[in-house]
Simulated scan of single mutants.
Amino acid sequence: MNPVYLDCNATTPLDPQVREVLVRYLTDEFGNEGSRTHEYGARAKQAVQRARDQVGAVVGVKRDEVIFTSGATESNNLAILGLREAGHATGRKHLITTAIEHKAVLEPFEALERDGFEVTRLAVGAGGYVEPDALKAALRDDTLLVSIMQANNETGVLQPLKELASALDGHPAYLHTDAAQGFGKDLESLRDPRIDMISVSGHKVFAPKGVGALITRRRGYERVPLKPLVYGGGQERGLRPGTLPVALIAALGEAAELAVCDNSARLARCKAIREVALGAFRGLSFKLTGEQTRVMSHVLNVSFRGLDSEALIVALKDLIAISNGSACTSASYTPSHVLKAMGMTDDQANACVRISWCHMTPDVDWGAVAERIRMLS
């Protein structure tokens, strides 16, 4: 038998209803959204526009504020690097982010740093979140962009987005959040109108890999002054040219709508799994990572006394499939930059595993998992 999949922060399974939509637009409704001379193209365009509405409804924006991309990595790059020209033109070349961002945010900031921008990286404490006062203290007159994730991919800790947004009251800096882990799960925080840009990843919300979105809220009639990273074709308001993958986009739209409709039931299922897991671990010596009142209900970042994460993963591989950090850096054996930023030593960071599930996760024999861990200790 296969082990139970418990790595949903890396990627989620495809929702059955989303799969139906995907297959329909791959096989039957295969028209090009840009074809204006026949019904195949018209129906494809309607599917894309409906998906814009569905994705926008999650965070309370209009369809023309949704730009489809290949995923959150591209969205992050467009949100950050797309402001390069605005920074040079206005002289506002100070940027703020955090030490615990995904590499898809940290590396574009490094690229701008090499181009003459100045970057402030906010620290976090052992709780794994940024204090709003730290953001206030870091703001300068020439601050152009603040980028702070909604929820951390390794710890599951939600950042205080509403308070962070409030800290920007009266300041013109653009606020971007990488919402790959929280879009469609933690709904309310992303509806704050002060958040200018939101990066979305399809495969973290039960849609296929290879599709995502960048949501760009207007300020009144003004749009975020982004410039494209690639050129040719003019699609997506000229910000992301290329033939639109209609099937992937329609599937993302369906996933977004389901995320809102089923949010309460999904949350309840995830909380129930968490309670059973923690109950099974009570007889073990373990430590949870981050401020638990802020951790999303489907994530446990945990270490067990005396056990290295790699050894633990191997020992449990026939029972559960888990990880010890971001899938994007899983080939690296260096300690997690997120856990190090939270004050852990190398040994402490290397002991942590990430267990993440979803509403589609089948029942887990947590007793057997706990017993296997006990035998290793």
Rank of each mutant, 00 (worst) to 15 (best):
L300K: 04
H298M: 09
S323Y: 09
V302D: 04
A277M: 13
V338C: 12
C328G: 13
H337R: 04
V246W: 00
G279M: 04
I313E: 10
V295R: 11
S297L: 11
I320D: 00
D308T: 07
S332L: 06
G306C: 08
V299F: 03
I322T: 06
E275P: 07
A247F: 04
A315P: 08
F304H: 06
T334C: 07
R266E: 07
C270T: 11
G283Q: 14
A321M: 10
D318H: 06
L258S: 01
D308Y: 08
S330N: 13
S297R: 09
I320P: 05
L319R: 09
P245C: 00
I273R: 14
P335L: 02
A280R: 12
E275S: 12
L339Q: 04
C328P: 10
L252S: 01
V260I: 11
I320C: 03
G290R: 04
R269W: 13
P245A: 00
A315L: 00
G290K: 08
S326P: 10
H337S: 04
G279V: 02
S303V: 01
G306V: 02
E291A: 11
S297H: 14
S309K: 05
S332Q: 11
L278T: 01
S297V: 01
E275D: 13
I273Q: 15
R305Q: 15
T289R: 13
L300T: 00
K271Q: 15
L319W: 05
G325L: 06
S264M: 05
L316W: 12
G343Q: 03
I313W: 05
F304S: 05
L339K: 05
L267K: 13
A250S: 01
S336P: 12
A277V: 07
A247L: 06
R269H: 13
N301E: 14
D318Y: 00
L288F: 09
C270N: 14
C270H: 12
A265E: 15
S336I: 11
A315G: 02
R269I: 10
S309R: 11
T329Q: 14
E275R: 15
L278E: 10
F286M: 10
A256S: 03
P335Q: 03
L312A: 03
R274T: 06
L339G: 02
N301H: 14
G306E: 13
P245F: 00
A268K: 14
M342H: 01
Q292S: 04
S323P: 04
F304D: 05
H298W: 13
F304Q: 04
N301I: 10
T329K: 10
S323I: 06
E275Y: 09
F286D: 11
A315S: 03
S309D: 06
L252I: 01
A277W: 15
D318T: 08
A277D: 10
A256T: 00
N324E: 03
F286A: 06
V295W: 03
L316T: 01
H337V: 05
G325C: 02
L288H: 14
C261G: 08
A315Y: 03
L252M: 11
F304W: 12
A255S: 10
G290T: 06
A311C: 10
